[in-house]
């Protein structure tokens, strides 16, 4: 068999230069994405490409504040992505709540629920700041420090505990039943038979 570790520098370079993003445009950060993608700041120069499907995405952009409702979607989308995957939190809301620091319905620390590799401060960060964050992410990928997906696997118990504390036990099944009722009901029928 071929020793694939030999090709690791090539793979790291390819990962660095071809980040396909799936952006979770929750808050006001979504409006910073069009200037990034179009002619002013053009992130396709670095091979970054917006992508609607989480299955082929590498970089997960969380642009803005996170509520418990969106956090469920964020966690499930994050777990749908194949490894290696990276998370870029955008703005101060996912960092510490931002202007929603005393809000009853905002998640203050996103880092407790999914691992964040790079966080950009600012309210809102300008496209330059986001470009800087993407550059930082590229550096981290090349040096192998962007290991959020490894941390999530190693500390899964801790992340799971935090998630369950917030949503209650069995929230995944409940959400899944709401999203894909035909699939869940079929499984149930089979069990009953």
């Amino acid at each position: 068999m071929v020793d694939w570790r030999l090709f690791d520098p090539l793979f790291e370079y390819a990962r660095k230069r071809s980040m396909w993003i799936v952006s979770f445009c929750t808050g006001c950060g979504g409006i910073e994405m069009p200037p990034l993608a179009t002619s002013r700041y053009d992130f396709e120069r670095f091979g970054v490409m917006p992508n609607p499907s989480p299955r082929m995405a590498d970089l997960f952009l969380i642009t803005g504040y996170v509520t418990p409702k969106t956090l469920k979607r964020i966690i499930i989308t994050y777990e749908m992505q194949p490894d290696p995957k990276y998370v870029l939190a955008h703005g101060s809301c996912p960092l510490n709540g931002g202007i929603y620091w005393d809000g009853y319905n905002a998640i203050k620390h996103l880092d407790k629920y999914i691992p964040v590799d790079v966080a950009i401060a600012g309210c809102m960060p300008r496209p330059e700041a986001v470009m800087d964050g993407i550059q930082k992410m590229m550096e981290l990928i090349e040096t192998g420090e962007a290991d959020g997906w490894k941390r999530y696997k190693e500390n899964y118990e801790w992340y799971r505990k935090n998630q369950d504390e917030l949503f209650g036990e069995g929230w995944r099944e409940k959400t899944a039943r709401r999203w894909i009722p035909w699939l869940m009901d079929k499984k149930k029928e089979v069990k009953e038979e």
Partner: peptide
């Protein structure tokens, strides 16, 4: 689109990734 665009070998990098 008046952008610079990716390098010509970008699809190869995508595939390797």
């Amino acid at each position: 689109h008046r952008r610079v665009g990716p390098p010509i070998y970008q699809p190869i990098l995508d595939t390797i990734k």
